[in-house]
Design a protein around this nucleic acid. Structure first.
Lengths: 204, 204
DNA sequence: CGAGAATGTTACCGATCGGTAGCAGTATGT
DNA sequence: ACATACTGCTACCGATCGGTAACATTCTCG
């Protein structure tokens, strides 16, 4: 029940980030993800960001506002990562798919993984919290982009394939922190097998 | 950020439950699930249970102790539900599988569903919390029981099938509360299709 | 009945929560 | 050099947090 307090060492990123606002968002990203949005107080975030509560409240109207910014930051970065993966493999949709699976593998084998930060935040937030809308929009968009990716790679029934892949990924991330580490550790292999054996509209 | 406080109406179950301990566990189950373990204070639980903080602390050494009991209660009930499903369909493993899928459908279409309570709790709890061990053991056991169920139903490669089904289910439950409602609403159909098209050791 | 255990009630503790006032210091651009 | 804006700092607010002391009340069961 205890959160880390101010004893967090100065993160590498903190020196580089000039503006207090950036440092606060970096600190929020770390602490909110590691301990949950409710277990971390604004003071701990301010201290980790090498600033103080007052400056924090000059940039964010309330803690809920900061939570929204935290979630928006994650959603933006998530979209940008996918943008980059797709942009780096413009020559072939199949390579885009493979690159995305490689990325999934990286995420799931990261030993600091504590599940999807957005899903974790949604779990802690009441239904009416403004951050929930951001999270839901992001997940919806992510699913839709998977559909388009699979359609471009000429998979048969890209909608259902995206459903399956999406849910397997989500299930793996949540399972990492609640025991079923077995299935989560095998999901990448499953994904590759699934994608390799799926019918296509044309053979490549 | 605000939890419901004492305004919760007296739940139906509260009158029937005699002992304060039972009432407290019922209240904890409701409030912890709905708002998260960190967002609910012990006082709110005591009031919802039609008792007071002092009595609560006579039955549970601390809030963390109550959280462990809450999680243990959920794990026990989860195991019992599966026990019952299997016991009611002893004549055929295939009927056991079908009955379990029907149960999954009930869970996912329950409009009060806010994901798996155990997974949600794990998200909020630090890695060293004693409740985490209970959660992990339960999920591990659940996965193992799925393997045995599929093996009894003579599915080919019951290990991988259990992995897939387990992750799809977990993914669906977490997705219900963070937007991807589309995929979650279609997962039962996916499961039925998956199970119907899977190779078996013998035809029935 | 009567005795002992379990419950209810109230008031309290120190700590921490989210959030703010006020002022001193430090960049910044012109 | 100057005004302006931003930042740091300290001290504080009321509320709530988890947890406890002391005592009155009720229940249970021999």
């Amino acid at each position: 029940m205890r959160c880390a307090g101010g004893s967090e060492a100065i993160s590498e990123g903190q020196r580089a980030a000039k503006s207090p606002r950036e440092r606060i968002l970096i600190a929020a990203r770390e602490l909110f993800y590691r301990h949950g949005v409710h277990a971390v107080g604004v003071e701990a975030i301010a201290e980790t960001a090498l600033t103080n509560k007052m400056t924090l409240y000059r940039h964010f109207r309330s803690k809920d506002d900061l939570i929204v910014a935290y979630v928006q930051q994650l959603a933006t970065e998530g979209n940008e990562v996918l943008d980059r993966i797709l942009a780096e493999n413009l020559d072939s949709p199949q390579k885009q798919v493979d690159a995305w699976v490689d990325f999934v593998e990286d995420v799931l084998t990261n030993k600091f993984e504590r599940g999807c930060a957005l899903a974790n935040a949604a779990v802690e937030l009441d239904t009416g919290h403004p951050a929930r809308a951001v999270i839901e929009a992001y997940k919806q968009r992510k699913h839709d982009r998977l559909v388009e990716l699979f359609r471009a790679a000429r998979y048969h029934d890209p909608n259902q394939l995206a459903d399956e892949v999406f849910l397997l990924f989500e299930g793996a991330r949540i399972s990492i922190q609640c025991g079923g580490k077995g299935p989560a550790s095998r999901v990448v292999g499953m994904l590759r097998g699934l994608l390799a054996s799926r019918p296509r509209l044309v053979e490549v």
